[in-house]
Write a protein that binds this DNA or RNA. Sequence first.
DNA 1: GCTTGTCTCTAAACCGGTTTAGTCTTCGAG
DNA 2: CTCGAAGACTAAACCGGTTTAGAGACAAGC
Lengths: 350, 350
Amino acid sequence: MKASRPTIADVARAAGVSKGLVSFALNDRPGVSPESRARILAVADELGWSPSVRARSLSSNVSFAVGLVIARDPEIIADDSFFPSFISGVEQVLAPRGQSLVLSVVGDEHLEEATYRRLAAERRVDGVILTDLRSADSRVPLLREIGLRAISLGRTDVDASAIPAVTLDDAPAIHDAVRHLVGLGHTRIAHVAGPDRLLHAARRKASFLHAIASSNLATPTVIETDFSAADGARATAELLDRAKRPTAIVYANDAMAIAGLGVARRAGLDVPRDLSIVGFDDSAIGRYIEPALTTVATDARGWGFTAADALLRLVEGEEVADIELPPAQLVVRASTATAPSEPTADRRHR
Amino acid sequence: MKASRPTIADVARAAGVSKGLVSFALNDRPGVSPESRARILAVADELGWSPSVRARSLSSNVSFAVGLVIARDPEIIADDSFFPSFISGVEQVLAPRGQSLVLSVVGDEHLEEATYRRLAAERRVDGVILTDLRSADSRVPLLREIGLRAISLGRTDVDASAIPAVTLDDAPAIHDAVRHLVGLGHTRIAHVAGPDRLLHAARRKASFLHAIASSNLATPTVIETDFSAADGARATAELLDRAKRPTAIVYANDAMAIAGLGVARRAGLDVPRDLSIVGFDDSAIGRYIEPALTTVATDARGWGFTAADALLRLVEGEEVADIELPPAQLVVRASTATAPSEPTADRRHR
DNA sequence: GCTTGTCTCTAAACCGGTTTAGTCTTCGAG
DNA sequence: CTCGAAGACTAAACCGGTTTAGAGACAAGC
């Protein structure tokens, strides 16, 4: 009539063996006779024994959990469909392996370092997944200092060998997007980019600029944003206000593209007749708005899956090499069309 | 030159006292002279000591973590802006108190029970926050069975006293929305509801029906969905296909409202001239689309904050009573307007 | 002077596992 | 027949904290 759950000692007593042997048997380690092993497992099962992570963590110096620290304004996370999909991919790996995900959302980057330090000091997690890499990211030396293993989404520019990366190449899709627009006759194509300090945002921007250059177009306008719908709207308004406004805009995420579409419409423009719009993310909403959003699909779920799997392998001591996922794909829908003939350029404003 | 971090024993040795006394001093417990306490704290600080949650958890039988299990398809979470805001509110309470959030995204409800059981069996968390309550929710008896403390978002219909609830009343805002539409001359107002088995979705539907009834309108059409943008689009198409199509639609979330707007547009309708649309969530994107979405704002962040705070108090043994948050608020923007005069009802379809 | 009580502190048990050192059998090789 | 090695198993240490029982010092009360 024990109130609390059975411990390994209870199992040992019931099976008539020592604690140590039970531990061996339960962990599939050699040195246990087949009969004893079977009996121990049977008894453990009968008693409804299950291991206490607490005890196991303490003695084996392993947390059986991985961390994910997201340093973004919650509103921006909400606008972005990346994280939910990403996290579900991570879970898909963790759950069957008995691991947990410790999530921290820290709002601003100043609390970030403290959060990683706490995770490491308290030994809450065995490793972390690094997202939203920044240029000269201070987390790379920080993680080394506090001895926390990590996998990064995209390669860091600090010390590429320090942290294994799972990469997903945006460039081909962005080139395709620009080529697609150029093919439709667009020559003034602008880019509403993410924060320049975020490597992936910078990389998308660079890919964009490169694609424009290789199409022999003039240097385009690029406006930097914080990835929020609000900032996407502001950037769009700014672009449309220009004397020679762009006839196409490539956004760094769907939320901004959708907000931009709203702004364009309010400015009296028809999308895609007067303005073509390309998003990035392939969010569900983009498929249903009118016009349906031409966008770039990245496999966020697969990214989470792969990163989590790599991290667990890393934590278990395996050497993990960088992993390259299939590149992002351009999805052409209805928000892009033939460029307007020149005169149209003045139908703007009110 | 110790490689690993200092333990309480190191501090004790350095301060010339016993382990036990160090523990007392660090936990602000009586029975330590002021001088000893000061010295111990100074030494601990100097050595850079920080507690190991692992050890602390094992000996004190407390996990210092709370769980959140989300049983939804990841795509639906991505469409929904609730969880990111909610989680950031939760973090705001947890982080300063040294607690962690263990997140599980389980995709479908069948894995849910196993997840809770695992969380409890492994003693990963001290309590959980229950979201997306269902009618006759099996988690209520389950949590009792496995002895996991919990706070629920909204009151359960199983045994209201079993789990303290943090409630946020949608009804006034939904009544306001209906009144607002009725005031604009609408008489055929439909509702695109969430899954009926979700209590909050059912409650929103009930509020809607009640508001319609008290406005003396005929029983309206209600279509049930799974909350996804895709299903919102389907429901909208179905509504617009009816002989007597509604002139206004109240959606159970913004994602569906936005998808519905796209469908309406594709059907050749102008929003809000031919069809008024009301969302629910006050997502950022809704503010920027054209027309800007009339919607209902709920304080997801505050909900997370309050629920997490209540849960921690509960875990510490305090009696926690139900907490009622300020009700949701209708936000009128541009997607609602005067009802079209009757003939308009036939401009639909292609 | 002796008891009682309070304060400060130590030693040791404890939480529930893992791991190491070492004992006891058994069996094959020489 | 003896020795060595392998296999099965036990006892005990250990992880890093918390908590309890109790020791010693000292002051107050009778």
